[in-house]
Structure formats: structure tokens, C-alpha cells
Design a protein around this nucleic acid. Structure first.
Lengths: 128, 128
DNA sequence: TCCTTAGTGAGAATGAGATGTCAATAGCAA
DNA sequence: TTGCTATTGACATCTCATTCTCACTAAGGA
């Protein structure tokens, strides 16, 4: 007999975490999520943030964003293809519109590309 | 009185490690370096690899290559600007020639770029 | 309202990468 | 060749992000 998935509950913390991602216009690190949730008065702990993020990824609501040299960031899934800007001062990550022209890079013979990641590093507007 | 830097010694292991980077045409992870050094019969341990890499970076011979989702890779410093290809099967990293045209990505107002990283993911020629 | 159980919080545990410790080894200047 | 000391090797330890533990809380169906 197959056990059905337990139904997910709508708790204050998960609602708050969802809201944090909805209102943020950029990928967030787990500690940024925690700070935002706590600022909103919904309590929260790091374990809850990680658990919720994992649950949200499983259900397809979030995706993880891997960047060079840091831990993972998370953003709402299903956005159009885009790249990221990583501020060297405040460590925040922003979304960049658009993508490179597809044939910019030529690959060596026999190599096949299935994806690419472009990260621009610099200082963001609020860190000037 | 200023103590002068101790002069560096030319040991079998460091010569071997240097040689590994000279003959590799791609960035190497520490464990790849260790494997290559041991294959060459020069002995070696992971601690030595890390210490040597750090010394080489300090003297400007190597630079670290940060890639999304993995630990650091290292390559000989001072090469012309280039990007990387990360094989999803064998986990090896290769160099790609060339760079994107500088005006490909437009940044939001107030953002300033100082560097960028492009990583292409896929399968390499020897993993087809 | 009651009851089952998913979710929470605090802190401990984990794991992988990287670095430190220390006795033994081996460059290299004298 | 000798003596000084940088380097090595084996292994312990640290770091940091992430996950687990467990007692407690609170959704939400009955």
C-alpha cells in the first residue's frame, strides 16, 4: 500500500518565508531569509528556513542559485532565463536581465553545452 | 628590524606540483593535483598540496578559479582572460578561449562591474 | 472541541574542504 | 660535511553551511 504524501500545513513561518521571496526582487541567502522573517515578526530559526526552502524546492516553488565562491542562494522558480550580479561589498546578489548571444563562446570539438552561468561582480547601486 | 622572508626551497614535491600545473592545460582541483603528483612518483600528501598551492598563490604563480557549486580549482596565473567549461560527468574543468563582447549585459543604473565569470556546463569530449 | 501529526526552535551533529601540529626529513649556505 | 631550518607526512583540528534531534507547539480534519 502506498502511503500518500503528508499534506503541507500553512504555518506563520512558511507564509512569512514565502512572502519574503515574493517581495524580494533578487536571490536570497538563507541567513538573509532568516533576518527578513524575523524582522517581520514571525519568529523563525535557521533550521526552519532551511526546512522550508527544501520543501519549497520540492514543490517547485523555489530554485537554488549556485554562485562562484559562496553558498547557495534561492529565488522563485520559473523565471525567464537570466544571470546574476554579485556585489563585492554587501554580498547581495541581484538579477540581471537578458542573456548572452548564443554563439558567443565556441566550444572545443566534441564538447556539448547544456547550460551556462554568468555572474558579474562589482558594486551595486546602494554600495557606491 | 625587518625579518626578510625565508627563501623558498626547491623540493621534489613542489617541483612535481609545479610540473603538474605546467603540463595540465586546464584548472585543477587539489585532489587532482595530489593524484597527479603521486602518479609521478613524487609522493605527496593533501596537506602539502594545499600548502604548496597557497605558497604559489602568494608568489603569484597560481590563481584560484571559483566555480558555481564546487570547491576551488587552481590554474597558472597571468593567462589571458578566458572562461571555463565544467563537465557534468567527470567533474573536470576546461578552459575556453575568448570572452563575451563587453556590451552584452546591461547593468541597472548605478551598478558598476569589475569582473565577470562565465561557466558553461555540459559533457566534455572524452565523456561522450 | 479533540486528536493526530506536521512544523518549530534551540542546539548538537554532520561532512567536506581546508588548515594546524609536530616529529622526521632534506635543501642549501657555510 | 655540517648545521640550520623550510618542508614534509600523517593525522588532528577547524570552519562553515547544512541537516538532524527531540521536546514542544499548533494546523486543520473529524
Amino acid at each position: 500500500m502506498i502511503k500518500s504524501e503528508p499534506r503541507e500545513r500553512s504555518t506563520r513561518q512558511r507564509r512569512a518565508i514565502r512572502n519574503v521571496f515574493e517581495t524580494a526582487d533578487r536571490p536570497l541567502a538563507p541567513d538573509e531569509v532568516l533576518a527578513a522573517v524575523q524582522r517581520s515578526g514571525a519568529g523563525g530559526s535557521l533550521a526552519t528556513v532551511y526546512r522550508s526552502i527544501r520543501a519549497f524546492i520540492d514543490e517547485g516553488y523555489l530554485t537554488s542559485v549556485e554562485l562562484p565562491g559562496t553558498g547557495a542562494f534561492y529565488e522563485i522558480a520559473g523565471k525567464t532565463h537570466h544571470h546574476h550580479f554579485s556585489c563585492l561589498k554587501c554580498r547581495r546578489v541581484y538579477e540581471l536581465e537578458g542573456c548572452l548571444p548564443s554563439e558567443t563562446l565556441r566550444l572545443p570539438r566534441g564538447f556539448r553545452a547544456v547550460a551556462h552561468d554568468l555572474t558579474v561582480f562589482g558594486t551595486c547601486a546602494s554600495c557606491r
